[in-house]
Amino acid sequence: MIERTRRIIAAIPALLTRHLLPLLLTTLFLLPLYWMLISSLRMPGQPPAIALEWFPAAPTLSNYTRIFQILPLWHYTLNSIIVSITGVTLTLLTASWAGFGMSLLGKRARLRLLLLSAGLQMIPVTALWLTRFLLLAKIGISNSHLALIAPALMGSSPLFILLFYWTFRRTNPAIFESAELDGAHLFRIWWSIALPMARPALMAVGMLAFMFYWNDFINPLLYLRSQTLYTLPVGLLHLQEMDKTNWPLLMAASVVMTIPPVLVFSALQRTLLWWELE
């Protein structure tokens, strides 16, 4: 009897960390999305709940049809898709080129570029955005989608380049060398040998870059003046400015905007969450 009690007590910490705590945390992490979703289903004009409500009394989808009527939401969505897809494609190109190029360099040059990338990672965007704005305005692309995609020129984030660099460093250099001895151009080797081996990096960077462009709020806020160019985040801001207190409507628009990244994440999360750096 005592032996059994002792065994049960000894099992409590394991029970806590293995099951109870993860379940509790999982519920906690789901709450923001859950509240976004159920608030979007409330009847507009219904008085706010005075006790915690886990599901609205008379759920309705009317908020979703309404946001598409009062805002050119389809148009904003299309803009967001255009910006994100071009941004992601260009990022995958430039980041994998740079990562591949870096992995081929000699030790000293490689170290210098690593330091440069680490240094770039350390500069907050807020320390650059004014003058970047002035610069892009001078070039004449400030009020256009090009201004939003501009970061793709440098692989969007030094982190993405490093992810590719690590991938290519890990692979046996003899594979690239033998192709080079056969006289293949480096861009050819990149396309036919390096990229097919870098599938996990392509998926992880593709996913992160998609979030980067789809979620971007600061750049469209700074650069875009014409409403026809607006992406979803600035569109959402407009909805908020129209009526700050219409929560069902605001939450419905938030849900619409959150669905694509959640889908992309669900499809590609495994590579990122089980990432090996070795």
């Binding site: 789901l30 999305l33 985040p233 938030s254």
Partner: peptide, 21 residues
Amino acid sequence: GLYRAIAYLPTVIPDTAYALV
């Protein structure tokens, strides 16, 4: 796998929607 994915999920929500919710 599921726990990790759900712990990451709020990070995926766009900043503007996240601020609003």
